[in-house]
Design a protein around this nucleic acid. Structure first.
Length: 293
DNA sequence: GTTGAGCGTT
C-alpha cells in the first residue's frame, strides 16, 4: 500500500516524456502547445521577437488558421498564425495575423498571396502596422519587444500617442468594433426578443442618434440600455394608444419576461424605477421626451 | 443561416 503511494508520488514527480506521450496520444496538439503556437492552443503570444507579422484582411468568417497555415507556409516559415475572435460569440472577426520568421519570406507571401481568392473571397495580405500591444511596427517587425522597466515609460508614451494621434483611425476602429458587437448583439436581441427588438429598433425615429454613436460603445450601450428600460415602459404606453394592435398577439404577458430578461442582463431592476414609480411610469417622461426629441 | 471596415491572444 505504501509502496503504491510511493510509486504514485515518484511517477508524479518524475514524469517521463514517454508517459506524457502515452497520456497524450494527440502529439500534434502537444507539439503545437510546446511550440507555443497560439494558432491552436491558447498559449498566448509566443515569442514575437524578430518576427514579421502580416495582416490578412477580407478573409471569410469561416476561414480558420488551419486553412491559412498551408497557404502561407508554402512561401516561408510561418511562426504563428492568429485569428482574432469575438469575445462573446467566439467567431472569427474576418482577419488574421500571420507571423513569418524572415522578412523576405513575408514579403514574398505578401506579393504572392495578396489578392488571392481564399474560400471564395479575395484576401488582402499586408504588413501589420501595429503590434500586439498597439505598438508601431515597421514592415511587420516589432521594433521594440516588451522592454524592461526603465524603457517601459518610453514604450508607453509613444504607444498612447500613436493611438491618440490616429484619432480618426481610432474612431473608425471603435466604430467598426461597436458595429460588429452591435451587430452580434442585435442579432442576439432579435433572436431572443424578436418583436421587442424590432419595436425597439423601430424607434429609429432618431437618425441623428446613429450618427452620434461614434463616440463610444460603452456609453452608447449604457445610454441605450438605461434609455430603453426607462423609455420602454413610457414609450410603450402611448404606443398602444396610437396603434392599438401593432404587435397583434405576440404575447401580452411576454413583455414581462422579456423586460426582466433585459434587466437581468443589462441593469438592475431598480433602475427601472429610479424614482420609485414603476407602475405609473406614464407621467414621468420629461427626460424621455427630451431624449427622443 | 446572415454581415465586411479594419490591426491581435494567457
Amino acid at each position: 500500500m505504501f509502496l503504491y503511494i510511493l510509486f504514485i508520488i515518484l511517477t508524479a514527480t518524475n514524469p517521463s516524456p514517454q508517459s506524457l506521450a502515452i497520456f497524450s496520444p494527440n502529439s500534434a496538439s502537444l507539439f503545437f502547445s510546446t511550440a507555443k503556437m497560439s494558432h491552436f492552443g491558447r498559449s498566448g503570444p509566443p515569442d514575437i521577437t524578430d518576427t514579421y507579422s502580416l495582416l490578412v484582411l477580407n478573409i471569410t468568417f469561416r476561414t480558420s488558421a488551419d486553412d491559412l497555415f498551408p497557404l502561407f507556409d508554402k512561401y516561408g516559415k510561418v511562426v504563428d498564425i492568429f485569428i482574432p475572435k469575438d469575445r462573446r460569440t467566439g467567431d472569427s472577426r474576418g482577419f488574421a495575423f500571420v507571423r513569418y520568421k524572415y522578412a523576405d519570406e513575408a514579403q514574398k507571401a505578401v506579393e504572392r498571396l495578396d489578392g488571392r481568392v481564399v474560400d471564395g473571397r479575395e484576401i488582402t495580405v499586408q504588413f501589420a502596422k501595429y503590434g500586439p500591444n498597439a505598438e508601431r511596427i515597421h514592415k511587420g517587425r516589432i521594433i521594440e519587444s516588451f522592454p524592461k522597466s526603465k524603457y517601459r515609460s518610453r514604450s508607453r508614451s509613444p504607444r498612447r500617442r500613436h493611438r491618440d494621434d490616429h484619432h480618426k483611425d481610432r474612431d473608425y476602429r471603435r466604430r467598426s468594433r461597436s458595429r460588429s458587437y452591435d451587430r452580434y448583439e442585435r442579432d442576439r436581441y432579435r433572436g431572443k426578443d424578436k418583436d421587442y427588438g424590432r419595436q425597439s429598433r423601430s424607434r429609429s425615429a432618431s437618425p441623428n442618434y446613429s450618427k452620434g454613436r461614434g463616440r463610444g460603445r460603452y456609453d452608447d450601450d449604457r445610454r441605450s440600455s438605461s434609455r430603453s428600460i426607462s423609455a420602454s415602459p413610457a414609450r410603450r404606453s402611448p404606443s398602444p394608444r396610437k396603434s392599438p394592435s401593432p404587435r397583434k398577439a405576440s404575447s401580452p404577458r411576454g413583455e414581462s419576461p422579456d423586460r426582466r430578461s433585459r434587466d437581468g442582463r443589462s441593469s438592475s431592476p431598480r433602475s427601472v424605477s429610479p424614482r420609485g414609480r414603476p407602475a405609473d411610469s406614464r407621467s414621468p417622461s420629461p427626460r424621455n421626451s427630451d431624449v427622443d426629441e
